[in-house]
Amino acid sequence: MTSLHTLRRKAVNAVMLSLTGLCTFAAAGTLVFILGYLFVHGAKDLSLDFFTKLPTPVGETGGGMANAIVGSAKLLLIAMLVGVPIGFLGGVYLAEFGGATFSFLVRYVTDLLNGVPSIVIGIFAYTLIVLPQKHFSTIAGGLALGVMMIPIAVRSTEEFLRAVPASLREGAMALGASRTKSILTVVIPAAKNGIMTGIMLNLARVAGETAPLLFTSFSNRFWSPGWEQPTAALPVMIFTYAISPYEDWHQQAWAAGFVLLMLVLSVNIIARLLLAKRKHVAR
């Protein structure tokens, strides 16, 4: 009751509230710092060569990471072919067809798969493809990334389909459309934009994955012809170059880091702005 008591409470109030503000600005400031630092250190070594030339051997300056950029694109293509159909159809099942028990199981296992560390997914692709074939390959790396895409593809598809108002569905069915027809012609088109942005975000996420590629697609100093050979990928190059002892490789790592970060963040920003009307983004 004393004023001293009140004074102390007010002081605690002010101090703690300011501290929470400080925490927030520290967290948000980290992003600004990361962006700024990569821009300063990465952008300056970026030239056209980076996008068009192969890496040079140690000691020779210059060169680029053209093979890694193409390699990443090939890996993402396979990942999409693996992850999107399964994830999308699984999501349609959960949103439109699923019964209670089996759907619960599917959701539970999907969440479980989403929580599996990426390095473990790498082991999985290794035992499944690399081990029997006895060589590293683009396909194995793509499969690993594809498996990583599945859980989020399922959950975001389900979420966007569920967001389609029941009245639209019922409207189509009232006109005599079968369930499938109403899903194909009304529900999915209505959810299309959301699902597509979900896939973009999903791709951006696996585009930065390194761990599952280390012993699946491995790496390659040269162009990787076809799909059966090991290939370079941008994130793996960043890792290899960063832990190397060579100064000019470090510079290349910064440049590659800058490119990767710009790609991932711009996709994220665009997708999140497109989804801004919806409150929640599946993680």
Partner: peptide, 28 residues
Amino acid sequence: SGDQVAHAITLAAAASILLLTGLLVYEL
């Protein structure tokens, strides 16, 4: 009308997630 077919296809996709996860554990 395709309902049964669509149900089967999507069910297969959903089931494959379970299989895949099971396979992962099995392989490890």
